[in-house]
Design a protein around this nucleic acid. Structure first.
Lengths: 250, 250
DNA sequence: ATGCGCTGTTACAGACTGTTACACATTTCA
DNA sequence: TGAAATGTGTAACAGTCTGTAACAGCGCAT
């Protein structure tokens, strides 16, 4: 069942206001006690009244929607430092569950809104955060709309590699704490296709398994090329020089 | 043709600031002269320095990204009243082109930011706008990730039907000003699949063609059921009662 | 009116991914 | 320890959607 962990969300709500000038959104949450979520536990569900904003302080969260006949779409994974539940609607538009043991802090929506409304420092930060979220959503649309299974898996590996290491130069190892099913539901594939694709990448020596939920990136250049983003410098793929079709803006 | 009541405001460029309390984002743009875009003309391109925010006052715009080998993903269509270019980044993250003849008004990003920063009325409206955009993006992810070709086309018809009529009770006719290729690039399908799917819907009497770029919705209930959203009251589809599989939140 | 070009439709073969099934590994619990 | 439950890997088959192509409809120019 869903034990929301220790729900000691005592009313530290307004305490955040005591510091006259908060400079980062992090600081807003700093004074609030942390709550713990077990693996698989839900933080909130799609349709719940949206009364709190959360900050992940440890662990990984998945946010997802479910449509009629049980199909699940994971719209994102959230890591330490990310915020959840940011919406003006009166209900949450998605559900949030713990992929790993998670620690979060919560603020009432009202407290959060007041704090932002009264701090000229915080507003642009919130705005920037939402812009980043939007940019990520659009990248995901590109992935889901036009990328092959292999490109999706490679993109996910690259994205996760960058995020896990706190955006520092991507390390050689990627941790994938979520299950294959989670990956499939995030990438718009089936679990088998994810599995096959990973197997193929290993066989080609692009990545090497490092336990069940981690991979060493053996050929970062090739992995990047396989993402299908066709960025700036076109990597020399193994399917020959792409024709670099003129972008043809109508 | 889509003509919103054209109230010929003439050039009062920066006058917007004179009114002490703006109440809607529309009013911000009201004083700016309108610019015209021909069909197919670009408003800005992905990677351009993002110096302006635009409001569509007439016509339809498509916003899209292009990846390496020419694949195009349309991330949205914008109608009268929508805003474009809203980002804190210093470059646009997508391109914008006119699907129909378009009229827009522009504000420099700085002017826009200042206005919002100084108006407690405007800020929540902007926030709400971005939340709506985020919600739309997530719905699109669901569509691209887990919906069949038929569900995608039906969802698009419903969405467009609602938007075109200015959100009033959905009329019987849907205008689709964009090309089949645009629809395909928005829905993550090929032009042929879009065409075939539409043909099938016509054959089944769900919709009826009304010129090349418009359809009459003959069976709104069935169209809604075919969207695959499995909402609240489960419509009685033609594939029998779905088993309403328990949502099984892990 | 005729021809050209663009958009949209239809048909068919084929590819990629999904479906189904089963084997194996790991963990949990009796 | 063993059995059940869960997660994962592999394979054969099937299905949807795609890619290619030819054709039809419409607008526009010669």
């Amino acid at each position: 069942m869903l034990s929301t962990g220790s729900n000691a969300h005592s009313n530290f709500a307004a305490v955040a206001m005591m510091k006259p000038q908060l400079e980062t959104l992090d600081e807003l949450f700093a004074a609030v006690p942390r709550e713990t979520l077990d693996v698989g536990a839900g933080l909130f569900w799609e349709g719940d009244r949206a009364q709190h904003i959360f900050e992940v302080s440890e662990g990984v969260l998945r946010i997802f929607k479910i449509i009629g006949d049980g199909r699940r779409v994971i719209t994102g994974f959230l890591y330490a430092g990310d915020m959840v539940g940011l919406t003006l609607r009166d209900v949450y538009l998605y559900s949030a569950e713990a992929v790993t043991p998670v620690k979060v802090r919560r603020l009432t929506k009202k407290a959060f809104q007041d704090a932002v409304e009264h701090s000229p420092e915080l507003r642009p930060r919130l705005f920037a955060l939402m812009c980043d979220e939007m940019a990520a959503a659009q990248d995901q649309m590109v992935l889901l709309s036009r990328k092959s299974a292999e490109e999706r898996v490679c993109s996910f590996l690259m994205l996760t590699a960058r995020r896990m290491q706190g955006n520092r130069q991507l390390g050689r190892t990627v941790q994938l704490p979520m299950s294959r099913q989670d990956m499939a539901d995030y990438l718009g594939l089936t679990i088998e296709t994810v599995s096959r694709t990973i197997t193929k990448l290993i066989a080609r020596g692009v990545i090497a398994p490092n336990g069940r939920h981690a991979f060493d990136i053996a050929k970062p250049g090739k992995l990047l090329a396989l993402c299908g983003d066709g960025d700036s410098y076109e990597e020399i793929g193994e399917r020959g020089a792409k024709t670099r079709q003129a972008v043809w803006p109508h």
